[in-house]
Amino acid sequence: MLQIEDLHVNYGGIRALKGVSIEVGEKEIVSLLGSNGAGKSTTIRAISGLVSAQSGDIRFEGKSIKGLAPHKIQRLGLVHIPEGRKVFANLTIRENLMMGAYYVREKSRLSKLFDGVYEMFPVLESRSQQLAGTLSGGEQQMLAIGRALMSQPRLLMMDEPSLGLAPLVAADVFRIIEKIRIEGVTIFLIEQNANAALRIADYAFLLENGVISLEGPGYELLMNPKVRQAYLGGVTEET
């Protein structure tokens, strides 16, 4: 569904990505792991058009999307939830969700989308008229996800959705990601929380210094000694 081929990105004079190839199949959860500065965010930002790639190709459903403006890529159904949630703090929760469905004009379709999101996140409905800035970190992540669902994504890219959340809330987020996949949305997940990300991933890639150093099914990477050593705190016994 999404193919990235030999992607090179220079970012402020630094070669952030040096030939990254990733493939995300339809209705899969694919994780991209790596430490800070490995180039994870750059990868996702290049896919959604926020940064431009020097060379390589990005294809979504067979068509190259490299060089397209971010809003055009989004409207193909390739929706990016940015790192740090980035809810519009000065807009109400309802307006935030509305931003996700900016071009949906029909009232009936719009209210169906709202119903779907409110069903998944009841807290958003009860506080729909409050400013998004008043939400807690976890609630803001739910809002960011809900806002993205309003865009009816075919592929949802999430940049560190569990970052800065309490472990219980983070677990909620991962449950929601699985739920979204069941509804037929493909997920491309960037995470530092390798343990949780690998548990739900069908397939995963490990990014180190701008190159993919390892890839394989989620459970395989979870068992891989190198991954355990570097990203799972060196715990070798089964947890």
Binding site: H71, Q74, P82, F88, Y102, Y103
Partner: peptide
């Protein structure tokens, strides 16, 4: 209003 707060995220909304 959204744009005044965060231009990049507005683009990610497809706007």
């Amino acid at each position: 209003r959204a744009l005044s707060r965060d231009m990049e995220t507005v683009m990610l909304m497809g706007v």
